[in-house]
Structure formats: structure tokens, C-alpha cells
Write a protein that binds this DNA or RNA. Structure first.
Length: 315
DNA sequence: CGGCTTTGACCTGCGC
DNA sequence: GCGCAGGTCAAAGCCG
């Protein structure tokens, strides 16, 4: 895999569900473990490209397009792609955007109003608004890598070990449920997350993380029992045998009961109402349209807007 | 009183 | 240019 691309941890389940593959470039095989309990979708990308080593696995772009070619897979191995996880930000990403985290933060709208006005004044004194606008357009902000996953939960805000401050809430179009915006409470930590409940299946909470924590998990406050009462499904599993230079942010190590996993049916189709692949058995498939977070996630990755994506719930 | 949520206003990007 | 939607700000209020 080229250094240009993010490192990916790629989990796929097989029909008999007794194998789990995890790859970051070269394929590494992990025995069946709790790690097939992730469901991630990511828009972390470099130059709009996002892929696995095409010689080993399907091209990630094709995967998102639903046009991945699985012909090289044996029938028994055709994956019900279950989870995709974007890992480290490659060094080359920094050169594409801002040169420092603080600058990135400013570009990303972290300036408060006072700072914004000040910056406007600084920028605007000698130059016209048009120029400022053009400049801003040129410096199109580079989004932090973002990860999203879906959890079957009655609780909206799942405890992930970090402290969060809610900074906004917005009504979501076509959804009775609002979207909540949180920022990591730790000073200078750029991580944000968004929570919204799926209106397709109201028992599903969609969580999207943006950025990476620059600190360890804070110690629980006095009287903070969240961790102590966290259900087993929320506990952080032991790390797999990842290679030295691989990272796996602990906040993403949230187990989701396997029967609640979402699955992407990797067959090549543009028909939203197509029949699921027969190799995936004993599943009820629900339509999962891409509004809200998912829509945003996929819009900002490489999926054409008019293309259908088929998501299904494994039950 | 500190930390957090709520919520209306504001900013920004995008499509028409 | 306008309107819409997403995202953010910040003052006010709540709570332990």
C-alpha cells in the first residue's frame, strides 16, 4: 500500500462467521475474536482517494460505490463487508492542508466570534471581501478524518471514556431526532463527535468522531460512575496483535453485539431494492437510506451523490 | 461555583 | 443573489 493512503483496518465477516481478517496493507489474519463487533464507516481520505491494497482486497472507492469486484474471491469467501476503519493520518496529509494543528483548528471553524471578527479585520484591511473569499476557497479546509459507527442503544450518549461538552444541537432534515454536537472537554483537544438517532430504526444511535485525541482518557471525576456501570458491550476489549506502527484509538473500541451489526452488501448494483446476496443467510434486511450523518460522511468521501448505497442491518 | 446543557443567533457552503 | 441546511457560538440557565 502506498504511503499516500491512510492505513486501514478492514474487518470482514464470512458466511460461517468464524473468520475475521484484518488488514493494513498486507493482510493480517486474526482469529475469531470480539473484534468483529465493530461497525465503522469512515471518510478519512487523501486526495479523495481511499482504498485498500487493490491487489489484496477490493478498492475502497469501489466498495463505497457498490461496484467492488469480488470476482477474485472464492464463493465461500465473498465478504459481507461489515466494518471499515480508517487509521492513521499519513504524513502527506499534513502537507495538503494546514501546517499545524492550531492552524487546522482555525481553518476548521474553531475560531470564536471575537477571533473571527479580528481575523476578518486583519484579512480585510488591505484586501477586498472577494479576495478573502477567494483565498478561503483556495484554502479549502481539510477535514479531520472522521469515523462513524452505529450502535443499538436506547441511550443517546454512550460513555466512551472521554469527557464531552455539548456545544450545539440541530434539527435534522427528514428526521424527528435532533443531531447533537460534542467537543472533547480536554483543553486543546480537537476531537468532536456528533450523535444522532436513526429515524429508520430508532433503536440505532449513529456516532461520528472527528479528529484524534491528543491525550489519554481522563480519570473519571468523583462520583462519575459511567464506566463502572457500563454494560459489557461497552467495555474496551484487549488490543489485537497490531503491528508496532499501527494505532487503534481506544475510543473506537466499542463493542457492538454482533446480532446488531450493520452490513454493507458488497454486490455490484444500483438498485436500492435488489435482493441480498444469498450467501448471507438468516438475515432480515432493512432499507437504510443515507440521510444525516451517513449522508454527510459519504458525501464527503468519494461516493457520487446520485448513487445508491445499500446498507442493511444484520439481525 | 464549576461544569455542563439549552437554545436562538450567527456563519458558511452549496445549489438553484 | 437568495434560500436552505449544516455547523458553531455564546449567553443564560440548570445541577450536583
Amino acid at each position: 500500500m502506498s504511503e499516500e493512503f491512510n492505513r486501514f483496518y478492514y474487518h470482514q465477516t464470512f458466511p460461517d462467521d468464524d473468520q475475521l481478517r484484518n488488514t493494513s496493507g498486507g493482510a493480517a489474519t486474526f482469529p475469531h475474536s470480539g473484534y468483529n463487533t465493530f461497525t465503522f464507516y469512515t471518510d478519512s481520505s487523501v486526495n479523495g482517494q481511499q482504498m485498500f491494497d487493490p491487489t489484496s482486497y477490493v478498492n475502497f472507492t469501489d466498495f463505497l460505490h457498490g461496484s467492488a469486484d469480488y470476482s477474485s474471491f472464492k464463493d465461500s469467501e465473498k465478504p459481507a463487508v461489515e466494518a471499515v476503519y480508517g487509521g492513521e493520518i499519513p504524513a502527506t496529509l499534513n502537507s495538503l492542508g494546514s501546517s499545524s494543528a492550531s492552524e487546522a483548528a482555525e481553518d476548521d471553524g474553531y475560531l470564536n466570534k471575537g477571533k473571527k471578527k479580528k481575523k476578518m479585520a486583519e484579512d480585510g484591511e488591505g484586501s477586498s471581501k472577494k479576495e478573502v473569499k477567494a483565498k478561503k476557497k483556495k484554502e479549502k479546509k481539510q477535514r479531520e478524518p472522521r469515523f462513524a459507527f452505529m450502535t443499538k442503544s436506547e441511550v443517546d450518549h454512550l460513555d466512551d471514556g472521554y469527557r464531552w461538552r455539548k456545544y450545539g444541537q440541530k434539527a435534522v432534515k427528514n428526521s424527528p431526532y435532533p443531531r447533537s454536537y460534542y467537543r472533547c472537554s480536554t483543553e486543546k483537544c480537537p476531537v468532536k463527535k456528533r450523535l444522532e438517532r436513526s429515524f429508520i430504526d430508532t433503536s440505532i444511535v449513529i456516532t461520528a468522531y472527528e479528529g484524534q485525541h491528543n491525550h489519554n482518557q481522563p480519570a473519571p471525576r468523583r462520583g462519575d460512575m459511567a464506566g463502572m456501570f457500563a454494560p459489557p458491550s461497552m467495555l474496551v476489549p484487549p488490543l489485537p496483535q497490531l503491528q508496532e506502527n499501527q494505532s487503534f484509538p481506544p475510543e473506537l473500541l466499542v463493542q457492538i453485539p454482533h446480532q446488531h451489526l450493520y452490513s454493507y452488501n458488497g454486490s455490484s448494483t444500483n438498485n436500492l431494492y435488489h435482493q441480498p446476496q444469498t450467501l448471507i443467510q438468516h438475515q432480515q434486511f432493512h432499507q437504510f437510506t443515507d440521510h444525516g450523518l451517513l449522508q454527510d460522511i459519504y458525501n464527503s468521501s468519494c461516493v457520487p451523490k446520485q448513487q445508491h448505497r445499500d446498507f442493511h442491518i444484520l439481525q
